[in-house]
């Protein structure tokens, strides 16, 4: 790995850099989630696109988003306990 030339950074500058990195990562993850949710919930809820997003489609999308989040969290928990289990083996 290339070394970082950061010898001249002050403590406060380092904190700022780390905060920026964290923020960028959070944005990237939110974008990924947005892309997946749009793709999945469009497929589930809009079979025949009409002239507007009607009420039942909106309700379906809202529910789908919540379930996608549930699924995401469940996958995250399951995967993380699997990692934990394999580490203890």
């Amino acid at each position: 790995m290339d070394t970082l030339s950061t010898g001249s950074l002050s403590g406060a500058q380092k904190e700022e850099l780390m905060d920026q990195v964290k923020q960028q990562i959070a944005i990237a993850n939110a974008q990924e989630l947005l892309t997946k949710m749009s793709e999945k919930c469009f497929k589930k809820c809009i079979s025949k696109p009409g002239t507007s997003l009607d009420n039942s489609e909106q309700k379906c999308i809202a529910m789908c988003m919540d379930r996608y989040m549930d699924a995401w969290n469940l996958v995250s928990r399951t995967y993380s306990s699997r990692i934990q289990r394999e580490r203890n083996m």
Binding site: N29, E32, L33, K36, K40, C41, K44, C45, C60, M63, C64, D66, R67, Y68, A71, W72, V75, S76, Y79
Partner: peptide, 16 residues
């Protein structure tokens, strides 16, 4: 987790 959710959603999810 993003990738697994994608795959497993398609495999497991019916109507929300």
């Amino acid at each position: 987790v993003h990738g697994l959710t994608d795959t497993c959603w398609d495999t497991c999810m019916g109507r929300p």
